[in-house]
């Protein structure tokens, strides 16, 4: 474990040095791809730049709002589809058609229909990120141990109680995985919407703004470093949360293996 950490650090350091050298020696055009040290310096400067922080805040607000609405819509919908076979049958063709639609294609449509930027962003984020949650909820409900359900039912509990006490808890870890996938999708969509909209701020908007100001890739890459860091942090936090909340689940999986 420790050795892996050391090696990983060596890999990162090696990459930084190589990229720095390539740019300093003119192996790549330093105007287009600036030295890593410059990019990192810009990233540090951006962290103290109130304007950039405002854009980060805008992006995270839309992301969080969109993801929250997606969860609020997709989980109940998934429970409904997963517990009623006739709804499952009827929605299947609809879901199968709607899911593969490239969500960014809806951005121009949303821009056209919704003048408010936050509403526009939220609606496309919701559309794109509800699928992983919905699908995971439906599949997880199908996988619930029938013995567990029948046990409760044999004690006289009604179907709602069974759903609440057995189906939902045992589906929850899979729903959480769906949420984690959806979180990454939501970030992609937020940035995409900001790039295409060209208004309303956000990290995507900021990168387009920088780009239109001429060739300043250093600033652009500095902003992208933060986009990557945000992506990693979001994933890390969600994994941590899953581990905490569903300790019983991973423990059980290990015993079973």
């Amino acid at each position: 474990m420790n050795r892996r950490l050391v090696r990983g650090a060596c890999g990162v350091a090696g990459f930084l040095v190589l990229a720095e050298v390539a740019s300093r020696t003119g192996l790549v055009d330093p105007d287009h791809i600036p030295p890593v040290s410059t990019v990192l310096l810009r990233a540090v400067q951006l962290a103290a730049d109130v304007e950039f922080l405002g854009h980060v805040g805008t992006t995270l607000t839309a992301w969080a709002l969109g993801l929250a609405v997606a969860i609020a819509v997709a989980v109940p919908l998934g429970l409904l589809i997963g517990s009623l076979p006739w709804v499952d049958k009827a929605t299947q063709p609809l879901v199968e058609f709607l899911r593969p639609i490239p969500s960014v294609a809806l951005i121009p449509l949303a821009i056209m229909l919704l003048p408010d930027t936050l509403q526009m962003k939220t609606s496309v984020i919701v559309y794109a990120s509800m699928w992983p949650i919905l699908i995971n909820t439906v599949y997880a409900l199908r996988d619930v141990d029938p013995v567990a359900k029948e046990t409760l039912r044999s004690f006289g509990f009604n179907p709602f109680a069974v759903l609440w006490r057995v189906s939902l808890p045992s589906a929850a870890p899979f729903i959480a995985t769906g949420v984690r996938v959806a979180a990454a999708t939501a970030l992609v969509l937020t940035v995409s919407a900001e790039i295409i909209a060209g208004r309303g701020g956000g990290i995507g908007f900021y990168t387009m703004l920088v780009r239109s100001g001429g060739i300043n890739t250093d600033l652009l890459l500095g902003a992208i470093v933060w986009a990557g860091v945000i992506g990693i942090l979001i994933n890390f936090l969600l994994v941590r949360m899953e581990r905490r909340v569903f300790r019983w689940h991973s423990a059980r999986a290990e015993v079973g293996a």
Partner: peptide, 8 residues
Amino acid sequence: PPPALLPV
């Protein structure tokens, strides 16, 4: 997020 690289 891949679209962020578009401007680059």
